[in-house]
Amino acid sequence: MHIAEGFLSPMQCAAWYAVSAPFVIHGARAVIAQSRRSPENRMLLAAAGAFTFVLSAIKLPSVSGSSSHPTGTGLGAVLFRPPVMAFLGTVVLLFQALLLAHGGITTLGANVFSMAVVGPWVGYSAFLLTRQLGASPAVAVFMAMFFADMATYCTTSLQLALAYPDPSSGIAGALGKFLGVFAITQVPLAVMEGLLGVVIFGFLGRVAPQDLARLGIRTTTSKELQHA
């Protein structure tokens, strides 16, 4: 998912920075507000960021010749809402670019938009929708993690298609090719990430139901997750 240095033109890099910046600024304010409102949740906030860092740093070879990895942003989106993950995801991507050569500084705006903006919002929307349809918390958490992961890769595919349109079929043709590169490996990874999310939320439901309640996740939900 992480677009490396040199893959986007300077104009495209600047455009993605401009698109991502408002979300990151709003997210920074949300993190500050969350920390002031519930200082007891700071450790859980840090854990959500660390979870995203670890999962998104795992590179797995793809059968299509690329590499893939989970994203981990769905967890934080459900716990703290998507704006918070825009900031946390940016911090994660910045450290990965500087310390792991995973991604890049010039392409940071594009990577932030796909993994820290689109992914969390899609994942959180899937969580809310499935809950409103009467699905169990376990199913809702699974859907949040799954769709946050897949939305990130679909967005990255679109970003690359805009940068490298197919000579004959244009952006649409390039999009199909880039999706094909990622999809074979990413679908099972997204499923595994969803299952991992269910396990983690079940654990939180057992050891920290009060923390979940402070975050607006009903105690009954956390109890259901214990038995998921």
Rank of each mutant, 00 (worst) to 15 (best):
M43F: 12
M43P: 01
L44R: 10
L45N: 03
A48Q: 10
F51A: 08
F51P: 01
F53K: 06
F53D: 01
F53A: 09
V54L: 15
L55Q: 07
L60F: 10
H69S: 13
H69P: 13
P70I: 01
G74Y: 06
L75K: 05
V78G: 05
F80H: 08
V84D: 01
M85F: 10
M85P: 13
M85C: 07
L88V: 14
G89W: 02
T90S: 15
T90K: 12
V91F: 11
L93C: 01
L98Q: 07
L99F: 11
L99E: 03
L100V: 09
L100N: 00
H102Q: 15
L108F: 07
G109M: 08
M115S: 14
A116W: 09
A116Y: 14
V117Y: 10
G123C: 05
G123P: 06
Y124V: 03
S125C: 07
A126S: 15
F127S: 01
F127H: 13
F127N: 06
L129F: 03
T130V: 08
R131W: 01
L133T: 08
L133Y: 08
P137E: 00
V139C: 00
M145L: 04
M145N: 07
F147A: 09
A151E: 02
Y153D: 08
Y153A: 12
Y153S: 14
C154Q: 11
T155A: 11
T155K: 05
L160M: 10
Y164I: 11
Y164N: 15
P167C: 07
S168P: 00
G170C: 04
A174Y: 11
L175P: 00
K177P: 06
